[in-house]
């Protein structure tokens, strides 16, 4: 193969990579900006900060009343789970919401790389979910009996970031289902609240029936929350690498499932001409 041909191929690869990265970052950024309500503090503060903060407080007091575990158990469980406000609802609205805004058909008419297109939409929600989660921890630290050592915070942040990412992958699956079923909230609402029940957020997994433990072990957040609890008690990251590995693997499975579902429902939407139905 001549040098000129090889240079042309290399240039083509570079350009495709640049396009893919542009779709991933710019597309994700603009899709987040398009959640116009979320840009307003009048919406963001009550929904993304105050609501999750009250969730942390509610379950901490319920925990005190039920005598199951201490405040730290509920603060860590709920502070990690509230990342689902962004990871599940945000992604579901971003992907499923393309239908309401009538942008779904034009979007899917483009030749853009689908992986970059949809994963890019998840990225801002991972960042936002992390912020929501951090606020939940801060509330627990300020108002409840939760006092992790300062040295645990960087390691806790790593676990929370991973958990937020897996939760967002789960949100992508929910969003993909929103391409098939027209009301994405019918799926997102139960998905968010079922995590409270199955993922060991408020009830130790050992206290649940066997079948619920099995379901929970395949859900996002379950292993991340368990790892975060140990890290908050002073364990090192290396001592929870098994839990972190499981959480990461589950996240990858959800990303893969979301990608497959998005492609399947895209093809089905084209075939049945349902992409523009609201």
């Amino acid at each position: 193969m001549s040098v000129a041909v090889r240079n042309r191929m290399s240039y083509g690869r570079d350009q495709r990579l640049r396009q893919t990265l542009r779709i991933f970052f710019h597309g994700g950024y603009f899709s987040y900006r398009a959640l116009f309500n979320w840009q307003s503090p009048r919406f963001y503060v009550p929904t993304m900060l105050a609501g999750p903060a009250f969730q942390v407080l509610f379950f901490a007091y319920l925990g005190r009343y039920s005598h199951v575990r201490d405040d730290a158990f509920y603060v860590v469980g709920n502070a990690v789970q509230v990342s689902g406000m962004s990871g599940v609802f945000g992604v579901a609205i971003t992907v499923g919401g393309e239908r309401w805004t009538q942008t779904l058909a034009p979007l899917l008419a483009t030749p853009a790389n689908r992986m970059a297109l949809f994963l890019g939409r998840a990225l801002p929600h991972i960042v936002n979910g992390f912020i929501v989660s951090a606020f939940g921890f801060a509330i627990g630290r300020l108002l409840l009996d939760f006092h992790p050592g300062l040295g645990t915070i960087p390691e806790l942040a790593v676990v929370v970031l991973l958990s937020t990412t897996t939760c967002t992958a789960f949100g992508l699956v929910v969003g993909a289902l929103g391409l098939r079923w027209r009301d994405v909230f019918t799926i997102a609402n139960p998905a968010y609240f079922l995590m409270l029940l199955f993922c060991g957020v408020n009830i130790p997994l050992s206290a649940l029936p066997k079948w619920m433990q099995v379901v929970g072990s395949g859900m996002p957040l379950t292993h991340g929350i368990a790892a975060a609890r140990r890290v908050a008690h002073g364990a090192s990251l290396s001592s929870v690498d098994g839990l972190i590995g499981k959480e990461a693997l589950i996240g990858l499975c959800y990303f893969a499932a979301a990608y497959v579902l998005l492609r399947v429902f895209e093809a089905e939407g084209r075939r049945r001409a349902t992409l523009e139905l609201v």
Binding site: L62, G63, S66, H67, V68, F185, T186, N189, P190, F193, L194, L196, L197, N202, I203, P204, A207, L208
Partner: peptide, 23 residues
């Protein structure tokens, strides 16, 4: 959802929570 599904989720959660707390 808000009037049937969500309360059932919370009822189940409260049941297992109180059971785990031996109440």
């Amino acid at each position: 959802f808000t009037s049937i599904i969500e309360p059932l989720i919370f009822a189940t959660l409260a049941y297992y929570l109180f059971k785990a707390g031996h109440r």
